[in-house]
Amino acid sequence: MKQLITIVCSLLVIFSFSSCKDDTSDITGDEAAVYQCPMKCEGDKTYEKEGSCPVCNMDILVISNQKKQISNNHEISDESIFNLTTNWNTEEGKVIQLEDLKGETLVMVMIYTTCKAACPRLVADMRNIEAQIPKANLEDLNFVLVSIDPETDTPKRLKAFAKENFMDGEQWTFLQGTVSGVREFANVLAVKYKQISPLDFSHSNIISVFNSKGELMHQQEGLGVNNKETVKTILELTN
């Protein structure tokens, strides 16, 4: 018996020492080399293995040791909002990440549905901007309204809000996040907000335009301000 206890004890002690050490396995990552034809016969097309160009037959060369290449369309740049990885619920009840919005120009604003003062005007500003965009451009455009009150603004509520405000078309997306996800998102946009009472927030009124890679291109601040610049940016991005 005594021996057993001694063994158990010593094991526990050893375990306790090792428990502080977390597995510090260094991530080396599989840094596959990327190859490309030196003549760029096929434009920016890249290969993962050595070989020769199918067009000019020259040996293809390593262009980068890193898997990640910004020229690559699948990559997200350092300054993209798609680096945020929290989950969001849409008004249609789907769970998405911001990255799922990639490929379209994004016009984003933060609101909450119980808002009486500023939000209706912000929403009006959004509709006003939308009205100035030709139909053809709308296809590559997504107007995203992010709730700063994720506890009240459920997908159901957002859907009802969308209908009430005639914003139920394909080009409108409403997002409900988590409290910390929303705070993080606001920090990226430099939107400031604070809960004043259970159904009331003070917040800054900023409409942000992102390109299809999620990089911030333009911000308009204030209510009912001249949105000429914003519309111009959107048109440039969607043409």
Binding site: A118, Y193, K194, S202, L223
Partner: peptide, 13 residues
């Protein structure tokens, strides 16, 4: 956490 919430009372940042 909410360092960016104080000092706003009105409409804009």
């Amino acid at each position: 956490s909410d360092f960016n919430s104080v000092m706003i009372s009105g409409e804009s940042r």
